[in-house]
Simulated assay, not measured.
Amino acid sequence: MRGSGHGSGLRVKTAGVVLALAALTGGCTSIRDHRGYLVDQTLVDSVSPGVDNRQSVERTLGRPTFVSQFGEKDYYYVSQTVKTPPFGRPRTAEQTILRVRFDPAGNVVAVDKKGIDDVARIRPEGDTTPTLGRHRGLLEDLFGNIGQVGAAGMGTGTQPTGPGPNGS
């Protein structure tokens, strides 16, 4: 009888350790989040160049994520899946951009699809932006303009010519 009590205590401890590990590792999974347009390939395939126009595209695919500002008013539908690892920054895992191009009459010319492979990766060089000119320190920034503002007309007794700031 004594031996069976010892075995059940070991099982309880083992079960407690397994539950604790499951709870700890369960919090270490990435969070997946979908942002933007939900792509339905059947609806995208139903948009036909030469047949559809702006109104029929909006009825089929919905309102675009944005419309181009220059040139022809193309429609863009943007879809992203973002993964956020524990204690990390969100990263785009999947991205789809649908571009519906129109002719000047508003009829569909083509439907283009781009993925995350077509995204340009930009790596900034550092925390500062290089500029032309000399480097100024903190004290020079604070006190460098003392005596500079309005110095041309001060103390000479001359009046500025022309109308003042209010036109008089």
Rank of each mutant, 00 (worst) to 15 (best):
M1L: 09
M1C: 08
M1W: 08
R2I: 08
R2Q: 15
R2M: 11
R2Y: 11
G3A: 09
H6G: 09
S8H: 04
G9L: 10
L10G: 15
R11H: 08
V12Y: 02
K13S: 15
K13Q: 14
T14E: 15
A15D: 14
G16W: 01
G16K: 02
V17W: 05
A20C: 13
A23N: 09
A23S: 13
T25D: 12
T25N: 12
C28W: 07
T29S: 11
R32Y: 00
H34A: 04
R35V: 03
G36C: 00
L38S: 14
L38M: 10
L43F: 00
L43W: 00
D45Y: 03
S46V: 05
V47S: 09
P49I: 00
G50M: 10
D52A: 03
R54Y: 07
Q55Y: 07
S56N: 07
R59C: 05
L61I: 03
T65R: 01
S68F: 02
F70T: 10
E72P: 11
E72W: 00
E72S: 11
K73V: 03
D74S: 12
T81A: 01
T81L: 01
T81M: 01
T84V: 04
G88M: 02
R91L: 08
T92R: 00
Q95T: 01
I97F: 02
I97S: 02
R99N: 09
V100L: 09
R101M: 12
N107M: 07
V108G: 02
V108D: 03
V109C: 01
A110F: 04
V111D: 15
V111Y: 11
D112T: 03
K113G: 04
K113F: 00
K114R: 12
D117C: 02
V119Q: 03
R121T: 11
R121F: 06
I122G: 06
E125G: 10
E125I: 04
G126K: 05
T128W: 10
T128R: 15
T129A: 04
T131R: 14
T131M: 11
L132R: 09
L132C: 05
H135G: 09
R136G: 05
L139V: 08
F143G: 11
G144T: 05
N145I: 02
I146W: 07
I146R: 14
G147Q: 12
G150F: 04
G150W: 05
A152W: 09
G153D: 14
M154R: 14
M154F: 12
G155P: 12
Q159S: 06
P163C: 05
P163W: 06
P165V: 10
P165W: 13
S168R: 14
